[in-house]
Computed example of a mutant assay.
Amino acid sequence: MEQQQEMQKPVALIVGVTGMAGLSLAEALKGLTAPAGPWTVYGAARRPKPTTWFPSSILDRYITFDAVNLNDTKLHLSPISNQVTHIFWVAIQVRDTEEANVAVNSLMLSNVLNVLTSSPGSRLRHITIQTGTKHYMGPIFDSAHSGQLVPHDPPFMEDSPRLPFPNFYYALEDFVASYAASKGFTWSVHRSSIIIGASARSVYNALLTLAVYASICRHEGKPFRYPGTRYTWDHFCDMSDARVLAEQQIWAAAVSETAKNQAFNCTNGDVFTWKSLWKVLCEIFEVEFLPFNETETFDWVAEMKEKGSVWDAIVEENGLCKTKMEEITCFSALNMVLQFKFQHVCSMNKSREFGFFGYVDTLKSMGMWVEKLRYMKIIPPTTATGRR
């Protein structure tokens, strides 16, 4: 009887557990009120577990392996291949071209699925795949294609036709749908906006990038100027709180039957202007709010490239986790977002129609996530909070 109950217990594998979304997933799954729980949670990543900011108590096991390498994947995942019931795929590797992104990310997913379904006793029931709004905009970070892109009109809708450009999000969706159908498990795709969470190991971390920028401005006594355009300053944008992302993925994986084999946008459910967000950030980081000034254009990406030693000094002075600025920020990627000539807004109608009502007030969530980054000793405290 005990063994039968143990076999019915859901076992999650979070691939990419050290990123913003992965960490929030682990926290949600190990929470006392986690749907379908209690869960056994395995977390996997390419690099060893961080010894400082990562809360190891939220995992039953941390697994280090390289998903690009099939032999390494077999070595580390075969021992749990007859245990895992749910995969939460929040992993990403970024290359110079979108064609290379397609190749490497498809290979990683293929290797993991092949290993976890190769066991005769495989219990895999569902896989969630996290993608994003590049689905509606095309490969915006690939210079070979970016000049030709015409994004869909906002708000972005899940049933919009695909754009005629390579996109690793499309490749992952097609692969998992085909593979799941052949193996008899279900899937769901979750298209995030700009993700806001707390981690020092996320490829695109807008909030941490802004926090580093603000910290350097404070340290040097320089103004915290908005580096975007008048258009983005005044027009709407949206974000995805990592907690909402986790909630929606668990809902689709283990709560809703109708959400199976579907793709959903996942945002906070509200919109903001960068003007309103900038005021909030100025309060949080204790810097002066400056109205947008079109005559004061500046290249913050170039300026920040020269500030690595300044960040090193901030880290040392405040006793922070040892990080390098270029490893925890994404100035070029965020700069592109701040130059958009369209409103970056997703529709959440489909998600609500299917029964998911997760919501976070974006502006209110900023302070919480910044405090978490401070608690994790990834960014420095302000004068109001004092030295830690």
Rank of each mutant, 00 (worst) to 15 (best):
L172G: 10
G184Q: 11
A198F: 05
R162W: 14
R162E: 13
V189M: 01
A206R: 00
I196T: 05
A214P: 01
S193G: 11
F175A: 07
H219W: 14
I196K: 03
N167R: 02
Y169V: 06
I216C: 04
Y204M: 12
I195E: 09
A211Y: 05
L172F: 06
P166N: 10
L207Y: 02
G197A: 07
L207F: 11
P164Q: 10
A171C: 12
A171S: 12
V212F: 07
A211N: 08
F185R: 04
T209Q: 02
H219C: 10
V203P: 13
V212Q: 04
D174R: 03
F175N: 06
L207W: 12
F185L: 10
V212W: 01
L172I: 12
V176L: 09
N167M: 12
G184I: 04
Y169L: 00
R191T: 06
T186S: 15
G184H: 12
Y204E: 10
Y204K: 04
G197N: 03
R218F: 07
Y169S: 05
V212E: 08
C217N: 11
T186F: 03
A181G: 15
R162S: 15
V212I: 13
S178M: 03
A214M: 12
P164L: 06
F165P: 00
S199V: 07
D174Y: 08
S192Q: 00
T186Q: 09
Y204V: 08
L207S: 01
H219A: 09
R191A: 05
C217T: 05
W187C: 00
R162N: 14
A211C: 15
F165A: 08
A200I: 03
L208T: 02
V203T: 13
Y169A: 11
L207C: 13
N167E: 15
Y179W: 10
S202G: 07
A181M: 14
A200E: 00
A198G: 06
A198C: 07
A177W: 02
R162A: 11
N167S: 13
V189R: 00
S188R: 05
I194N: 04
P166H: 11
